[in-house]
Amino acid sequence: MSSDGASVHAALVGVTRVYPARAGQPPVHALGPLDLELQRGEFFSVVGPSGCGKSTLVDVLGGLAPPSQGEALFEGKVLGSTVPDGVGVVFQEDASFPWLTVWENVAFGLRRRGTDAAEIRRRVDYALGFMGLQGFAKAYPAQLSGGMRQRVCIARTLVMQPRLILLDEPFGALDQQTRLLMGDELLRLWRETGATVVLITHALDEANLLSDRIGVLSARPGCFIAIVETGWSRDRDSTLAEDPRFGAVTARLWAYLRPESLRALGQQAPAVPDTLRSAAE
């Protein structure tokens, strides 16, 4: 993909992130060094083994945490530790406010921004419909399933009309069918708004289906070991899974990811004690 400065929307230049040492714990080198150029309006997904620094990548891209080295840029400006206007983030964890109704949750950011009431109503009602939550406007998050709460958080971010949307495993709590449908909706939204989307996911076929490009991260510290271009047309949807080329892309992703996932498992699992080893032999 061409990297002429005009179409670069956000970028990482030599970014690393190290969590400083805490009581009794050594510092954790979570991410990088990493280089990335996101084109304006592209759909970019990130896959990687668990614990490889995907959420840390979202923090840096969103200006929630500064890189330890290197620079993160959004629309040509260097990010520090404030989230710039125009960036929307959906976190991996449930972030809905339990003291507000679904409707109030979704309206939260717009109200703080001082948008006028009629406009808020228009956008919130639209987003609730979009996310299949119309019937739950007056419900409280405690009355919803985890997947529905996550949809509330997505709607809350979408109504702010961000130009760069960062989604950290937003469909993690959804069943496969809903996931596919939500993916279609997300594609529709992406086409309509022209926003740049960065999606973190652990589902390879989801990354494949939705993305223009997919960055594959290594085990921690996460570095891009490959960036796969899918070449799908802009008006794709979940029926793409029937395309014979689809399986080939997923297979390629898995070929890159398999050794990294094995490494990541090894990072977590304790070494096999000698006693067990001799018994097994």
Partner: peptide
């Protein structure tokens, strides 16, 4: 207070006063 709520406040560019009034107090 849930850290993710505070991070949400940051992504929506709330002022410190708004964060206290609309997130920390209700929480």
């Amino acid at each position: 207070v849930n850290r993710t709520w505070l991070r949400t406040a940051r992504t929506m560019s709330l002022t410190p006063m708004q964060t206290v009034r609309h997130v920390i107090i209700p929480a």
